[in-house]
């Protein structure tokens, strides 16, 4: 199956069928940090992915400026 990964954006081939949980383990992805999407639909960790599936593993972690209220000198 084709698996789209991000940050950086890239595509890898993984043999199927396999479960979402097994795919994430194989690619060393923490399931707490990603969503798995097939087509436009979310799939759970027990879902079986066919060998010809196109799968997106979408990271959900975003960061940057951190908390808006804890920077010194920005609020009394």
């Amino acid at each position: 199956m084709k698996v789209l990964l991000r940050n950086p954006r890239r595509e890898v081939e993984v043999p199927g069928p396999t479960t979402v949980g097994a795919l994430l383990a194989r690619l060393d992805c923490n399931p707490e940090s990603v969503l798995v999407i097939v087509g436009d639909e979310l799939v759970t960790h027990d879902a079986v992915l066919a060998d010809d599936a196109s799968v997106e593993i979408r990271p959900v972690i975003s960061g940057g400026a951190g908390n808006a209220d804890t920077a010194p000198g920005t609020r009394s």
Binding site: E32, P59, I61, G63
Partner: peptide
């Protein structure tokens, strides 16, 4: 979806990864 290119490697993201572990 893609992360801000200027945030890469910042400390806040490292804390999140540790907490998710």
């Amino acid at each position: 979806v893609d992360e801000c290119p200027m945030a890469t490697g910042n400390r806040h993201l490292a804390y999140k990864e540790s907490l998710n572990a």
